[in-house]
Amino acid sequence: MLEVLSGLLIACGIFLFASGTLGLLRLPDFYCRMHATGKCDTLGASLALIGCALYNGFSLVSLKILFIVLFIFLANPTATHAIGRAALVNQVFPWTRGPSPAGSNFGKEREEE
C-alpha cells in the first residue's frame, strides 16, 4: 500500500515537472515562463520528495527529505521573486497581445533581448 502511494506521489511530481518544462518552452514572455516554472517546480519537487520520504519509512533520512521539501517551498518562490524584481528594475516589460494600454510603451513589440 505504501509503495503504491509513494509511486503515485512521485508520478504526480514528475507530471508537474513536465508541465513546468512545457510552460518554460512554449510561453511567449519571460514573465510567463518564470510564472510557469516557479510554481510547477515547487509543487512538483515537493510531491516527488514526499513520495520518496514515504517510501523510505519513518527515519531521520525521511525527516531530512521533508526538510528539503520545506526549504524548496520557501526558497523557490523567493528566487523567482528576486529574478522578477531584477527584470522589472531593468525595464523588461511583460508582453501583451494586441494594442498595448494607452499612454505607455508597455510591451509594444514582443520583447527582444
Binding site: G20, T21, M34, L49, I68, I72, N76, E112, E113
Partner: peptide, 23 residues
C-alpha cells in the same frame, strides 16, 4: 533569448536535479 531566461532555466534544472539525486 537573454540572460533572464537562462537563469530561469538553470533554476528549473537545479530543482529537477535535486529530485533526481534523491531518486
Amino acid at each position: 533569448p537573454g540572460f533572464l531566461n537562462r537563469i530561469v532555466a538553470i533554476n528549473d534544472i537545479g530543482t529537477k536535479s535535486v529530485v533526481i539525486l534523491v531518486l
